[in-house]
């Protein structure tokens, strides 16, 4: 999901020439899991992770939001091989289980040399290898090691090994930052700097391409069939036309970053990190404002106030 509206505060806070709006990002409860993909080398682990997290930008039409959390060194993985930690978020545990099974089945099981493990210590268990084992057509074998069941499915390069289940936990989806800039270069530069900094924060993903979304949406549309449509208040092309706009005439480009996190504190930490990266660039880089999207605070229980985050008033 992405932003709906934003509020520009009258007493705007400014740092390094960049104004921070007196507003908040409104986020929602989601269900999430972390899985660890390992492979013969980092390249193949990455191939599997990229494929598995493809077409997973928004729950609006993808079924889940997913992304690579971080790259794992061999000493961080269960089997001592290079790996990647992936986070998946969905609106329900049932949908998450469905998406996980499809994505692991089509993108990880199929990828040379990979294995997959649960990456969270506790939570409600959903199937990981439990159903995929049937690909083995009766040749699959299981092994319980130290209380954990693994499935070994014969495949052409040897065995696909998968932990039987992975825990699901309550999580937070839809944290966001909106960067308003002079032009495309400035807006992209700000968003890229923010994403680069936020990727170092554990427990979060930025699910859109490159971590950035340029099509901020609002709920609903003039067309009844659509559940979401372009948020004209943030479209520079509509600044002189829209009934309500958040932009001034000098704003030529806007970019948004959506953040999903395992914990509210993770999202808060990522948002603060992203804002600080952009504030460090300053107005000299063509950035004018930082804002955030919300729905008036009535839909989502998690409110991330930008100024409170920067002031350290929100524990992150």
């Amino acid at each position: 999901m992405s932003a709906a509206t934003a509020t520009t505060g009258a007493d705007a806070m400014e740092r390094n020439g960049v104004r921070v709006d007196d507003t908040f990002a409104e986020a929602f409860p989601m269900k999430a899991t972390r899985v660890l993909i390992t492979a013969h080398n980092a390249t193949w682990a990455n191939h599997a992770a990229v494929a598995m997290t493809g077409f997973a930008t928004s729950v609006i039409a993808c079924g889940c939001e997913a992304g690579i959390e971080r790259v794992l060194s061999p000493d961080e993985t269960p089997d001592g091989r290079p790996g990647v930690a992936v986070l998946l978020f969905a609106v329900s545990g049932k949908e998450l289980a469905k998406q996980l099974e499809r994505r692991v089945g089509q993108c990880v099981l199929t990828c040379p040399t990979t294995a997959i493990y649960a990456g969270l210590p506790a939570g409600e268990a959903i199937a990981l290898g439990r159903n995929l084992r049937f690909f083995g057509d009766g040749w699959q074998i299981s092994k319980m090691l130290d209380g954990v069941r693994y499935w070994r499915v014969p495949v052409m390069d040897g065995e696909f090994l998968a932990e039987e289940t992975t825990p699901v936990v309550k999580a937070v989806g839809g944290g966001n930052l909106i960067f308003l800039a002079d032009d495309t270069d400035a807006a992209l530069g700000a968003a890229e700097a923010a994403v680069a900094a936020m990727r170092a924060v554990p427990g979060v993903i930025m699910p859109f391409p490159g971590g950035v979304v340029r099509s901020g949406s609002k709920i609903g549309s003039k067309y009844p069939a659509l559940v979401a449509s372009s948020n004209e208040a943030f479209c520079p092309a509509l600044t002189p036309l829209a009934k309500k706009t958040e932009l001034d005439a000098a704003t030529g480009c806007v970019m948004e970053i959506v953040i999903d996190g395992l914990l509210e504190a993770d999202v808060a930490r990522a948002m603060r990190t992203g804002m600080e990266a952009v504030l460090a660039l300053g107005a000299a880089a063509g950035v004018r404002r930082i804002s955030a999207g919300n729905y008036g605070g009535k839909l989502g229980p998690y409110h991330f106030h930008l100024r409170k985050l920067l002031a350290g008033e929100v524990r992150s």
């Binding site: 390992t38 269960p78 089997d79 001592g80 091989r81 294995a115 092994k143 090691l145 130290d146 693994y150 070994r152 390069d157 040897g158 065995e159 090994l161």
Partner: peptide, 14 residues
């Protein structure tokens, strides 16, 4: 003749 190093890593460590 196949490569079972992944499973072996788990079993051997246990």
């Amino acid at each position: 003749g196949h490569d079972i190093r992944v499973f072996w890593a788990l079993l051997a460590r246990s």
